[in-house]
Amino acid sequence: EDYYQILGVPRNASQKEIKKAYYQLAKKYHPDTNKDDPKAKEKFSQLAEAYEVLSDEVKRKQYDA
């Protein structure tokens, strides 16, 4: 799945936009606030993985290549 789609940001998003999108979605899908939703944990880990790659310039360049 596309990391940009997961975070809901365009491919040319700035680091600030990526961070903002991640924090909004992380708050929304955090397992502690969605105890009754088994998919929230999965969504949250996808968000974390996408953010880890896109927030790191080197990893992001490799991902975009």
Rank of each mutant, 00 (worst) to 15 (best):
P38F: 06
S45G: 13
D56G: 01
L47G: 03
L7N: 01
Q62G: 07
L47Q: 03
V58G: 08
D64Q: 03
P10G: 09
A21H: 09
G8H: 10
N34K: 04
K19F: 11
E42V: 08
G8R: 09
K39N: 13
S14I: 04
K20H: 14
A21L: 03
Q46K: 15
N12Q: 14
P10W: 05
Y4I: 00
L25N: 06
N12K: 11
Y63D: 02
D56L: 02
Y63P: 02
K59N: 05
Q62H: 14
V53P: 00
V58C: 08
K27W: 09
S45A: 15
N12P: 03
G8W: 04
Y63H: 03
A65P: 04
S14G: 07
F44W: 13
V58T: 10
E17R: 15
K27T: 12
Y23T: 13
N34V: 11
R60W: 01
H30R: 06
D32L: 12
Y23Q: 14
E1P: 15
D36R: 04
Y22E: 00
V9G: 00
E1I: 12
D37E: 05
K35C: 08
Q15C: 07
K28W: 06
P31G: 08
S45E: 14
V58N: 14
G8Q: 11
S55L: 05
Q24H: 13
D37H: 04
I18M: 03
D37G: 03
A50C: 04
E57F: 05
K20F: 10
E17T: 13
A13E: 01
K16C: 10
K43W: 08
D37C: 05
Q46A: 12
G8Y: 04
D37M: 03
S55N: 06
D37R: 03
P38E: 11
I18W: 01
R60V: 01
P38D: 12
P10D: 12
E57Y: 07
D32G: 10
Q5D: 10
L54E: 00
A40V: 14
T33F: 15
E17L: 08
R60N: 02
A40T: 06
R60D: 02
N12Y: 10
Q24P: 04
A21E: 03
V53A: 03
F44S: 04
V9Y: 00
E49R: 12
K16Q: 15
E57L: 10
Q15D: 11
D56P: 01
D36P: 04
E52A: 13
Y29P: 02
Y51E: 01
E52G: 13
K41Q: 15
D37P: 03
S55D: 05
I18C: 02
K43A: 08
E17P: 01
S14K: 08
P10Q: 12
D32M: 08
V9E: 00
A48M: 15
Y3K: 03
P38T: 11
S14V: 05
A21Q: 08
K61T: 08
K16H: 13
P10F: 06
K20C: 08
K16Y: 11
D2R: 03
V9L: 09
K61W: 06
V53R: 02
V53Q: 04
E57S: 09
D36K: 05
K43E: 06
H30I: 06
E42L: 09
N12H: 12
Y4H: 02
K27S: 12
Q24G: 11
G8T: 04
V53L: 05
K20V: 14
A21P: 00
D64K: 01
E57W: 09
Q15M: 10
K41P: 10
K27R: 11
G8A: 07
H30L: 08
E52P: 02
V9D: 00
Y51S: 01
E17S: 09
I6K: 05
N12W: 12
Y4P: 00
P31L: 06
A26I: 10
E1V: 13
A13G: 04
V9F: 01
L25G: 06
K41V: 10
A40L: 13
Q24T: 15
I6E: 03
K59Y: 05
A21C: 05
P38L: 10
Y51N: 02
L7T: 00
Q62T: 08
F44P: 01
Y63E: 03
T33D: 14
K43M: 12
K39L: 14
Q24D: 14
I6G: 01
L54F: 01
G8D: 07
S45F: 12
E42Y: 07
E52K: 09
K39G: 11
N34L: 14
E49Q: 14
A65T: 11
P10C: 09
Y51V: 03
D32E: 14
I18Q: 00
D56I: 02
E57I: 11
Y29C: 05
A21Y: 03
Y51K: 02
Y4E: 00
F44M: 11
Q46G: 05
L7Q: 00
I18P: 00
R11V: 08
Y4A: 01
A48R: 15
K35W: 10
S14P: 08
A13F: 02
E49M: 14
H30Y: 08
V9C: 06
I18G: 00
Q24W: 15
D64C: 03
L7K: 00
K43T: 08
Q46D: 06
Q62V: 09
S55F: 06
T33Y: 14
K16L: 14
K19N: 15
Y23R: 14
A21N: 07
Q24N: 10
L54C: 02
A13T: 04
D32S: 11
K20S: 15
D64L: 02
D32C: 08
Y23S: 13
A21D: 01
K43S: 05
I6T: 08
A65H: 11
A21W: 03
K20Q: 11
I6H: 04
A26T: 08
V58L: 13
V58S: 10
K27E: 15
K19R: 11
S55K: 11
E57D: 12
Y4D: 00
V9N: 00
K59G: 04
K59C: 05
K61Y: 08
Q24E: 14
Y3M: 04
V53K: 02
Q62I: 12
K20P: 01
K41H: 13
L25S: 05
L7C: 02
N12C: 10
Q46T: 08
K19I: 14
K35Q: 15
K59E: 04
L47N: 02
K59M: 05
K43H: 09
S55R: 08
L25M: 12
Y29W: 11
K16N: 12
K35H: 15
K20W: 14
Y51Q: 02
I6C: 06
D36H: 10
E52S: 15
F44K: 03
D56H: 04
D32Q: 08
E17C: 09
Q46V: 11
K35F: 09
D2A: 05
V53Y: 04
S45C: 10
Q15P: 10
A21M: 08
R60M: 01
A26H: 15
E17Q: 12
V9K: 01
L47Y: 05
K59S: 09
Y3F: 11
E57Q: 07
Q46F: 09
V9A: 02
Q24R: 15
